[in-house]
């Protein structure tokens, strides 16, 4: 009871502080609000710059992608690092590397698994078998088409991770780990960020700042730095997708097996 009273007081104080500020907010949906159009006395609005100039500067029609992967690419790199750190933290918290239990009996091969009227396995297994390839293809489309339509590395990576989770749901975790083992996915997670950081590092060797993709035109042999930026964003998204995919599956595998990484569900 005591906790509830103090929580109520804290929450009411917070709400009052928040409401105090709301009175001076710009109206909802106002296109001339400071966030959307900038204010006097400061630099020109970043938002208007993105809308008006970013296609000329990066040749990417999806403004969210160009801001995410280029203008604020440094943020996005650390966003991927957050995911990586979460994967590592879950590993050190849950993973039991010294389990004393004997290994379970090896399961029969996939064809013989749906035997003796185990309807459940048939229903879920069949649906997963139909869905997994479609999910994976669509995930690749989302990663690759992030320049032109909603999508990008995070969304595609989550879908790829989900496809491996579906393998585990439809069959068992062992099947999924046979396709994407623990060693592999932890390395892929580092590799993804490494790809991202490499796209930032190469410009440094060419005498520019970190993540200045424009100078990569010398490597991609594009006509002009804009297309080099566009191509680099694709590369960066692939790195993000790798990391996100691996860590999503790592989280699922660790949580669903209580850190044992084996057996069915």
């Amino acid at each position: 009871m005591n906790a509830k009273v103090s929580a109520t007081i804290a929450v009411i104080i917070t709400g009052a502080v928040l409401l105090y500020g709301v009175a001076d907010f710009p109206d909802f949906g106002d296109p001339t609000s400071p966030a959307n159009a900038g204010v006097e006395g400061g630099a020109p609005s970043a938002s208007l710059h993105f809308i008006n100039e970013s296609y000329k500067e990066t040749k990417v029609p999806n403004l969210v992608t160009s801001v995410l992967a280029d203008y604020r690419g440094y943020d996005t790199m650390f966003e991927t690092v957050v995911i990586f750190a979460a994967g590592l933290a879950i590993f050190v918290i849950l993973r039991n590397l010294r389990s004393d239990d004997p290994l379970p009996e090896p399961l029969p091969a996939t064809e013989d698994r749906f035997i003796d009227g185990d309807h459940q396995r048939i229903i879920v297994g069949t649906t997963c078998r139909i869905a997994i390839p479609l999910v994976q293809i669509f995930a690749l489309y989302v990663v690759a088409h992030g320049h032109h339509s909603p999508g990008g590395g995070f969304q595609g990576g989550v879908m790829l991770g989900a496809s491996f989770i579906l393998v585990a749901l439809g069959g068992n975790l062992r099947d999924a780990l046979a396709r994407l083992g623990e060693d592999t996915f932890m390395r892929l997670a580092s590799l993804g960020i490494l790809i991202y950081a490499a796209f930032g590092l190469v410009p440094q060797f060419l005498g520019r700042n970190f993540l200045d993709y424009g100078v990569l035109e010398k490597i991609f042999l594009t006509d002009g730095p804009e297309m080099a930026r566009s191509h680099s964003m694709l590369g960066v998204e692939v790195g993000v997708a790798l990391t996100v995919m691996s860590i999503m599956f790592a989280i699922f595998a660790n949580l669903s097996s209580r850190g044992e990484m084996r057996g069915g569900l």
Binding site: T127, I130, L169
Partner: peptide
Amino acid sequence: LTSPTSTSA
């Protein structure tokens, strides 16, 4: 396809 399957699961 998926909604009945997940209910069943």
